[in-house]
């Protein structure tokens, strides 16, 4: 077939274009961070890392990262806990209300995120609670917990229930079964769930807009500084923030490797 080669090339060009289009803006951020002028004139007359030095010296950088980290870690904790338990109901057990439960639990994913945040803001203010990073955790969790539940459930669908039954028949206690059979089977799902939760929370903008109050997480700060008071500090902090999240993910992967080697 002579057409085969042409089609293959077309496919390569198509996929290449898609990937390039997705990464051009990201590369642009990096390029913008290497300038030293407020008004960008690309190609820069002076290429410099000044913005990174300024970001490293600025205490705001640390504060922003700490707030985002606080929120993300709490979201990971909450969503792994609720998601693991929820996944048991979603995929492991067959029970009467399961099909309804499965449908209702995904609803928050299919809701506009600012609407979720606003609804929470109004509820909090009706209860007299001031918005802060803690309320942002709640807002993030409402959207992220269902996703983590689905991620863990995917693993559970392939889980062989007979293993548990066998362990019980051999005289294992409920706790032993949970620790030796169920959790190890769930572990890869829990790990990917935690990774998803961390990354989705770290990068989320719309859920934080109304709910974070005076504690500004990284994406929200970047959003407001892009609109007003722009300087190369903004793309520099954007690059630093993305690198930090990448490092944290690598760290988590390394921990998993270590744990896997031990057992």
């Amino acid at each position: 077939m002579s057409g085969g080669r042409h089609i293959l090339w077309l496919k390569v060009i198509w996929v290449g274009t898609v990937v390039t289009a997705l990464y051009l803006p990201i590369v642009s951020v990096i390029l913008a961070s290497l300038a030293n002028t407020r008004y960008m004139r690309f190609p820069h007359r002076v290429w410099t890392l000044d913005a990174y030095r300024a970001a490293a010296a600025d205490y705001t950088t640390v504060t922003l990262h700490m707030i985002s980290l606080q929120i993300a870690l709490c979201v990971v904790l909450v969503s792994v806990l609720l998601g693991t338990i929820g996944a048991m109901a979603y995929a492991r057990y067959d029970w009467k209300g399961r099909s309804l439960f499965q449908r209702l639990i995904v609803l928050p994913i299919f809701f506009p995120q600012p609407v979720l945040g606003l609804a929470l803001l109004l509820s909090m203010s009706a209860l007299g609670i001031a918005p802060s990073w803690k309320t942002a955790v709640v807002a993030h969790a409402v959207w992220i917990v269902p996703i983590v539940t689905l991620v863990i459930s995917i693993r559970l669908f392939g889980y062989d229930v007979a293993q548990e039954e066998a362990a019980f028949d051999l005289g294992a206690s409920r706790w032993q079964v949970a620790r030796e059979i169920t959790l190890p089977a769930l572990w890869p799902g829990i790990f990917s769930g935690a990774l998803f939760a961390f990354l989705l929370s770290w990068s989320n903008l719309p859920l934080s807009v109304y709910t974070s109050g005076a504690d500004t997480p990284l994406p929200l700060w970047l959003f407001s500084r892009t609109a007003t008071n722009y300087s190369p500090l903004v793309p520099a902090i954007a690059v630093i923030g993305t690198f930090v999240s990448g490092l944290i993910v690598l760290l988590l992967l390394a921990v998993r490797q270590l744990l896997a080697r031990r057992t």
């Binding site: 642009s28 990354l199 994406p219 993305t242």
Partner: peptide, 12 residues
Amino acid sequence: PIFISESVRLFG
């Protein structure tokens, strides 16, 4: 890119 904040990518 899903995991890079949309404010970063839109700015880019």
